[in-house]
């Protein structure tokens, strides 16, 4: 088996062996194994985080594969969480992966413990449920949402998700690069937090390309819950 020192050489160069070793005790839940979930799991699953819980009741369809970068045509029909888990183990065999072919509301009844929850869902009501659950458990969560050429990212700690309207909106058109872009920002916040580095909490990032093709990055503060 390859040594951790060899596998994580460049990360140890960045933050040292102690921080790298601490990551192995961390556990995260990724809710949704679609576009955001694929990119999040690939980047975080090979970072040295000890345990990933992957939650998704859906199976891989051909129209998913262009932007859900973990999957190949051979995965059509497979449960996303299971196909993703297999890929992660092939990338880093020491990773502990648990897969859950169920909805978030069912998943949380198992009373697992996590250091962080990451939102890779595609519905507002599920995000509201994640926020409520995270507050009840006293753990933070990282929000991400993406469509067309824009998306939001936020590390929610004390603030609530209430500034967004909880509608039954369904996702619109999208391309692969913006999905990976938003997931990458979520993963950066998650990994910095888990590595004990500073993370600005309860700050909403909105990123979008305007009509002129210029990338805009706006930041908004969120109110803490009463």
């Amino acid at each position: 088996m390859i040594t951790k020192e060899e596998y994580f050489n460049r990360q140890i160069l960045l933050w040292g062996e102690e921080t790298q070793a601490q990551l192995s005790s961390k556990s995260i839940a990724i809710i949704g194994c679609g576009g955001l979930g694929s990119a999040l799991a690939i980047t975080l699953g090979s970072s040295g985080i000890g345990t990933l819980h992957l939650v998704d009741f859906d199976t891989v369809s051909v129209h998913n594969i262009h932007r859900q970068i973990a999957y190949t045509m051979e995965d059509e029909g497979a449960y996303k969480c299971e196909a993703l888990g297999k890929l992660l183990k092939r990338r880093y065999e020491r990773l502990k992966v648990s897969t859950y072919k169920e909805k978030f509301e069912t998943f949380i009844k198992q009373e697992q413990e996590f250091d962080l929850i990451i939102d890779a869902t595609d519905r507002f009501p599920v995000r509201a449920s994640i926020d409520k659950y995270a507050k009840a458990q006293g753990i933070p969560w990282v929000h991400g949402s993406v469509e067309a050429f824009h998306g939001y990212v936020c590390f929610y700690d004390k603030a609530s998700f209430d500034s967004f309207k909880i509608s039954d909106q369904v996702p619109g058109g999208i391309t692969p690069p913006i999905v990976v872009f938003i997931a990458s920002l979520q993963a950066n916040l998650a990994l910095r937090y888990l590595a004990g580095l500073n993370v600005r909490k309860d700050e909403l990032h909105y990123l979008y390309f305007d009509d002129l093709g210029s990338l805009n990055h706006r930041k908004f503060l969120l109110n803490e819950e009463d």
Binding site: F124, S163, P171, G172
Partner: peptide, 26 residues
């Protein structure tokens, strides 16, 4: 600064209000 219960919010001269669209997908 994001607001909740926005209907109750008072606005002052010089305030800048940002209208942010919903983004659902993931």
């Amino acid at each position: 600064k994001m607001v909740t219960n926005s209907e109750d919010c008072m606005l002052s001269d010089g305030d800048v209000v940002s209208v942010l669209p919903p983004v659902c997908g993931g």
